[in-house]
Each structure stands twice: as structure tokens, then as C-alpha cells.
Simulated assay, not measured.
Amino acid sequence: MTEPRPPRVPAPSGLVVVDKPAGLTSHDVVARVRRALGTRKVGHAGTLDPLATGVLVVGVERATRLLGHLMLTEKAYDATARFGVATTTDDAEGEVLTTADAAALASVTPERIRAALEDHRGDLDQVPTAVSAIKVDGKRAYQRVRDGEQVELAARRVTVHELEVTDVRGLEADFSLRCSSGTYVRAIARDAGASLGVGGHLTALRRTAVGPYDLGLARTVEEVAQDPRGSVLPIAEAARRAFTSHDLTPAQAADVRVGRRLDDLALSGLTALFDPDGEFLALYEPRGEAGARPVAVFV
């Protein structure tokens, strides 16, 4: 007689902060987390190209609904740019478009490289790289480029809060930055190269943080495979890290569980609400001049 199978234990709801290696797509990482935790309900916030490494925030079960709210948060990167060559993708994986001659390169000093990169601090009208995931008439820009189409994207307003050049070696420069969501670091290398008159592209990119989730929390894909449940940051802790939090009274918690407005709760912005036992219930926002209304309920 066949032994009955033990009941399946659902995957925990929370975030897996993955230190993505080079060569894997964000979709590859999601597929590995799905296999490790035995659930299809997995998604990610903020795509990383195969060239890039570092922080990829992956949501599991109920926490997948947090991802859309995390997409708008600040990000931090370490990057390396090379000047003298422009490529179709603004990084080392693209085809060469132009190569600067010796006379032009002779004018590129370390001081000019630093100034060209540091000029990208503050509010910028940035044209995204042509191989971005932005949709053009319903089709991803990168797919149009792969299909041989010419893609021209409109400039978008982004903010680079901090940018520091940490090293210059000949025509290569290392720099670190903290920026708004939607900023393309490859475009910074491209535009800095254009301002130098020699072209430029990105040769390395490592994302060091997405909002409050940084490399200190990150697990490699191998570590996730070895200890999948231990790799999940519980949804309550994930929410407290990312949002202003508020602990409710039992009566308020009962109302929040069914998505009612709270006329007696004053909030200053998007807020994570918790019941008296510490369970994460919902995200609420201010409602007019008084009270609060639900944005997303997680129970």
C-alpha cells in the first residue's frame, strides 16, 4: 500500500533579495526561485540585464503585490564606463557604432572624464537606451532593435541624487550613484562619452541597493537553492523596511482586514498597517483632509 504524501506546505510570503550573477536574466532568477520554493507565484521588481549583477528583489506569494509599489523606489549602482567606443546597446554586449581616432582620444584627460560623468548629477532629461524594456506601440524597444528597426525614444525626467567617480584608468572610469527609478546607467556612460566627443559605453554594472534592500540582505542563487525558506524576508519585515509603518488597534485592524476606510487615522503618505500582533495587513494612503483609504490589502 502506497504511503500517503505529506501535505504540501505553502511557500512563505515575502521577498528574496538575490545577488544576481552576470549571465542570468531576471526571468532566469525568477524561474530558479520558483523551483526552489515550489510555487508559481513569484515575480521581480526592476529588471537587471544579463550583463549586470547585484540586487534583484523577488516577491513570493502575497508579497508579489508589493512589487509594483517597490518599483518606484530609489536605486544605487556601481558602474564602469569605457570611453572611445560607442555601441548599439550602450554597453559592451552591443555592436560597435563608432570608434574615436587617436587625435580625439588624446584630448580625453582624467579630469575631463570626471567632469563629464559628474555633470550627470541632479535632474536630467535622459533619453533611455534603445534596448530598454520600454514599450513602443505595444512592443518592447529592445525587441524592435533586435528586429532591425530604428528606435527613437523620448527623453524622460530622472534624478541622480549622488554620483561619485571613484577611479579613472586611462579611458575607463569607475563610478557610484544613487538615482531615481527609471534612470539608465548605460545612458549616462553614452551621454558622457558624447560630451567628450569620443563616444562611451558601460562595461560593468552592479546594483547595490533597491530602496532599503541592499547587498547585505542578498543571497546568491546557490544559497537560495540550498536554503529557500531561510532566504525569504518575511512580508511583515519587508513592509516595515520599505514603508512608514503604523500599528492599529484591534477595532481598526478588523476594518482594515475587509478594506474599509479609516476615518480616525491620519497618515502622511503611503503607510504599511499592522495588527496588534504584528501581522502586516495592508498599504493605506491619506484620504483627503481626514482619514485613510486602502491601496492594497494583503490578508
Score class of each variant (00 low, 15 high):
Gly291Lys: 08
Asp19Val: 00
Met71Pro: 02
Ala81Val: 05
Thr64Met: 09
Val198Met: 09
Glu172Gln: 15
Val160Asn: 06
Ala290Trp: 12
Gln226Gly: 11
Arg261His: 14
Thr25Trp: 05
Leu196Asp: 02
Leu24Asp: 08
Gly94Glu: 01
Ala236Gly: 13
Ala104Tyr: 01
Pro6Ala: 09
Val16Pro: 05
Ala189Leu: 11
Gly200Met: 08
Arg178Asn: 09
Ala238Cys: 07
Thr87Leu: 12
Gln150Lys: 15
Ser132Cys: 12
Thr208Tyr: 07
Val131Glu: 00
Thr80Asn: 01
Glu289Tyr: 09
Pro4Ala: 12
Asp119Lys: 13
Thr109Asn: 10
Thr129Asp: 05
Arg206Met: 11
Leu51Asp: 02
Val221Ser: 01
Thr89Met: 09
Ser195Thr: 13
Ala116Phe: 10
Ala81Thr: 02
Ala100Asp: 05
Leu262Gly: 02
Ala154Val: 12
Val168Thr: 12
Asp147Val: 01
Leu37Val: 00
Gly259Ser: 04
Arg241Ser: 07
Phe280Met: 01
Leu270Tyr: 02
Thr2Pro: 15
Ala251His: 13
Gly182Gln: 07
Glu285Thr: 13
Thr98Val: 04
Cys179Ala: 12
Gly199Asn: 01
Ala253Leu: 06
Glu162His: 15
Val18Asn: 03
Arg157Phe: 00
Pro21Phe: 10
Asp264Lys: 11
Glu162Val: 10
Gly43Arg: 10
Phe280Ile: 10
Lys135Ser: 03
His201Cys: 13
Ala225Phe: 04
Leu15Asn: 02
Leu117Val: 04
Pro228Asp: 00
Glu3Leu: 15
Val29Gln: 02
Leu72Tyr: 12
Ala116Ser: 12
Arg287Trp: 14
Leu72Arg: 15
Val256His: 02
Ala236Asp: 15
Thr220Pro: 05
Leu177Arg: 08
Leu171Trp: 01
Glu289Gly: 15
Arg114Met: 06
Ala116Thr: 05
Ala272Asp: 06
Pro7Lys: 14
Arg140His: 06
Arg62Cys: 01
Leu217Arg: 15
Gly200Gln: 11
